[in-house]
């Protein structure tokens, strides 16, 4: 008799668990970013309008994108994007510590984050404080004098392969 009850208990428990797991899966998917949010993830920016040592801030996926045209005296770096002989820093303008937006100090040629005191040089490399890595470079594809952010071009793939930035 007890084995019959056991069977019924297990059958009930099994189906209930199955339903529970299905509901959890649905709940997880409900919290996922919507397709319309994911599809809005491409932005084209024109680099030719940037002026030397003057920070331009664009927006990509709701995040600020730093564009800094480097002057000839500023140090070279393997993370810069070169278009028509001009060198640019293009990076996501969120501190790699906890995501605040660092301010650019053009006289000191560096970025400073007010939240936890992190500092980055004009190449976006961390020089002080808690940031664990340089400012991330968004996936980009060079298209004439423009950049398409969100698409992956060979220059970006090379940077990824050389571990100069990480995928975002």
């Amino acid at each position: 008799m007890s084995s019959r009850r056991d069977f019924m208990g297990m059958a009930l428990g099994g189906f209930a668990a199955l339903g529970g797991i299905a509901a959890l899966y649905a709940a997880k998917k409900t919290w996922d970013p919507l397709p319309s949010v994911k599809a809005g993830g491409f932005t084209t920016i024109d680099l030719s309008v940037a002026k030397e040592n003057e920070l331009v801030i664009e927006k990509w996926r709701g995040k600020p994108i730093f564009i800094l045209k480097k002057s000839a005296s500023m140090p070279k770096d393997n993370r810069e994007i070169v278009i028509g002989g001009n060198r640019y820093l293009v990076a996501i303008g969120l501190c790699t510590h906890l995501g605040c937006i660092p301010a650019y100090l053009p006289n000191d040629l560096m970025f400073k984050c007010a939240c936890h005191g992190g500092e980055f040089d004009s190449n976006g490399k961390q020089t002080f404080g808690p940031p664990p890595r340089p400012l991330d470079i968004p996936p980009f594809k060079i298209n004439g004098t423009s950049l398409v952010l969100g698409e992956t071009g060979p220059e970006y793939e090379k940077m990824l392969a050389n571990k100069l930035t990480q995928s975002v």
């Binding site: 970013p33 919507l34 949010v37 993830g41």
Partner: peptide, 8 residues
């Protein structure tokens, strides 16, 4: 991104 349901 899952918690936010968006990139930001």
């Amino acid at each position: 991104e899952w918690i936010r349901g968006d990139y930001v």
